[in-house]
């Protein structure tokens, strides 16, 4: 192990880790919005909306995220979409994870006991009131874990944007492996930083899960 090398390159990695955090956070926000819309569309009473929701989810889940990024970033200019690597990365990752999150959200909504809906309806609540006051508060709790798993997958998946030359953690690692020929040391640093982030997200998910547990 070459510790002086590790010491020398460490600051670059920390900087790169912040890019990874930034891109993950932005993609997460975009993904949640896309997921909420897609879940609503898939569960809507309008057939065209249902089709759109189903198509989005199945196409983005049925193909590799890497290809989606390549279509957007390399193919985009052919159809008039010119994006910076960072923007393409956020949009590509966000739309991809949104499709997975849509299923997490839908699964949680469907998992709420039917009796809950019936009870609210017999009191006289409308569909919307029932959704807002009875179904969503209970589903929110059921969503925390699956959405947490999606977020961890997004964080690790963000490494893919290195292939469209976003200078984040994996790109930085790749560059230093190429220039130093010390893959174990470089991998060690990058792995450490990823693991800190991944297990931090897992902790937050645990806390949220406890916080929203129904006593």
């Amino acid at each position: 192990m070459d510790f002086s090398l590790m010491q020398r390159v460490f600051p670059f990695f920390v900087e790169a880790a912040f890019v990874t955090i930034e891109i993950t956070a932005l993609a997460l926000v975009l993904g949640l919005v896309a997921a909420a819309l897609a879940a609503a569309a898939k569960m809507s009473r309008s057939a065209p909306l249902r089709t759109i929701g189903t198509l989005y989810v199945s196409l983005f889940r049925g193909t590799p995220c890497l290809i989606q990024l390549f279509v957007l970033y390399f193919g985009g200019p052919q159809v008039g979409i010119n994006l910076e690597p960072f923007a393409a990365g956020v949009i590509g990752l966000g739309l991809n994870i949104g499709a997975y999150m849509a299923e997490s959200i839908r699964g949680a909504l469907v998992a709420v006991d039917r009796g809950q809906i019936e009870a609210a309806r017999t009191i006289g609540f409308s569909r919307f009131q029932t959704l807002r006051k009875v179904v969503l508060p209970q589903a929110a709790r059921l969503m925390i874990r699956p959405l947490g798993v999606n977020t961890v997958a997004l964080l690790k998946g963000s490494a893919l944007v290195s292939t469209i030359s976003v200078v984040e953690l994996t790109y930085t690692a790749q560059r230093f492996i190429g220039s130093t020929y010390k893959p174990f040391e470089i991998f060690g640093i990058a792995a450490l930083l990823y693991m800190i982030m991944v297990y931090a997200v897992a902790r937050v998910v645990d806390m949220l899960d406890k916080r929203f547990a129904i006593v």
């Binding site: 006991d113 009796g115 809950q116 019936e118 009870a119 609210a120 309806r121 017999t122 009191i123 006289g124 009875v134 508060p137 209970q138 709790r141 129904i214």
Partner: peptide
Amino acid sequence: KVRQQMGMVFQHFNLFPH
């Protein structure tokens, strides 16, 4: 409106757990 005027009690209670 009509349901507000009828009270219903279920076998499995269906209380709102949250």
